[in-house]
């Protein structure tokens, strides 16, 4: 029995043990990734449990008062609302340009141009947040104020004064500036997944549509986009996740005020921006814990978004397989 096991260089023992060890090793290291995420969730939950307990899971989320001094009352709603508005706004603004870039790179552009566009998209994702922020505070915000906000504000003051409360004070640092800079920053995340999804559509689909006499756009509309829809939507989810978590650039341009209601040009605040602003300064324990609780909610949102994105991709893959 043992003799047969040890015979030859690729003996049973050697293979079994080697494979076992290797697999165990890989699993051990890989579970480090899961452990890390769980550890993070645990630390955030642990740190944030006090305000969640005191104000309630939803009470903390929907409370509108964030007062670390007098009332010691912490409600995250101004930051949640700011985060939602800025990231959804950024997604809406960036979605079509990103899709266009993906379509152009994947279908229309000559090879050399496509590779340049792809490279530039990667680069857009790689530019550090602080560099965007630097450009935002020194160039973009003053420019927008001078050439967009102020003229718009004055025009509204003249023609439709009723709009003014919605526009808010055009200082250049505010919600719209944050939305615009976020939009530019998340383009590559939508674009990359959309591009991959489009190039994964089988060539036969295109050829079939062309054979039916479709123009290039019709091929896009009828054959390619329906099949790559899942990837595109998943890309949008990831871009949204990125926008939700973006910290430095937003903090630098958003104006940082949690006074509701928010206005278009006026200052606002987001969950990451308030963490960056107040984390180093929180002296009171409950204040610090509330900031960590915000981090815990961010973690939950990131988790849900990724679950959604994964679900959409899986569903789409099954759908695509069904079509083929």
């Amino acid at each position: 029995m043992t003799r047969s096991l040890t015979r030859g260089p690729t003996s049973f023992m050697y293979r079994m043990l080697g494979d076992r060890f290797f697999a165990a090793f890989v699993v051990l290291l890989a579970s480090g990734v899961v452990a890390l995420a769980l550890l993070m969730a645990w630390e955030l939950y642990q740190g944030g449990s006090e305000p969640i307990r005191r104000f309630g899971f939803f009470g903390f989320l929907t409370g509108t008062e964030w007062d670390p001094v007098i009332a010691k009352q912490f409600g995250a709603w101004p930051y949640v609302a700011g985060t939602l508005v800025t990231s959804l706004g950024a997604l809406a603004l960036s979605f079509f340009p990103a899709l266009a870039a993906a379509i152009y790179a994947a279908e229309y552009a000559p090879r050399w141009l496509a590779s340049i566009i792809n490279y530039l998209l990667d680069l857009t994702a790689a530019v550090p947040s602080v560099v965007y922020g630097l450009w935002g505070i020194f160039v973009m915000a003053p420019w927008l104020r001078e050439h967009l906000y102020l003229p718009a504000y004055l025009l509204a003051a003249e023609k439709v004064p009723g709009l003014l409360p919605f526009l808010g004070n055009p200082t250049g640092y505010g919600m719209l500036t944050a939305i615009l800079i976020l939009a530019a920053m998340i383009v590559p995340f939508t674009a990359a997944l959309a591009r991959d999804a489009i190039s994964l559509v089988p060539q036969a689909q295109r050829e079939a549509a062309y054979a039916l006499g479709a123009t290039r756009w019709e091929v896009m509309l009828l054959a390619i986009l329906p099949l790559s829809k899942g990837g595109i939507i998943a890309g949008a989810f990831l871009a949204l996740g990125r926008a939700l978590g973006e910290t430095m650039a937003v903090t630098m341009v958003i104006g940082n005020s949690h006074k509701l209601p928010y206005t278009l040009f006026g200052p606002a605040a987001t969950m990451p921006s308030v963490i960056a602003n107040e984390f180093t300064e929180a002296v009171e324990q409950i204040h610090l814990d509330s900031l960590i609780a915000l981090g815990f909610y961010l973690f939950l949102v990131a988790l849900v978004l990724n679950l959604l994105a994964g679900w959409v991709i899986r569903r789409q893959m099954q759908l695509t397989k069904g079509v083929l």
Binding site: V27, A30, S31, V33, V34, L36, A37, L38, L39, M40, E43, L44, L238, G241, R242, L244, G245, E246, T247, P272, I275, A276, F279, I292, G295, L298, F299, A302, L303, L305, N306, L307, A309, G310
Partner: peptide, 24 residues
Amino acid sequence: PLNVPVRLMADTLNGMPAILKGLV
């Protein structure tokens, strides 16, 4: 069986604000 959590957690980690990683 570990694949589902690994993939999910890797993506979630990727989507987390970097400031929270500093915190940990």
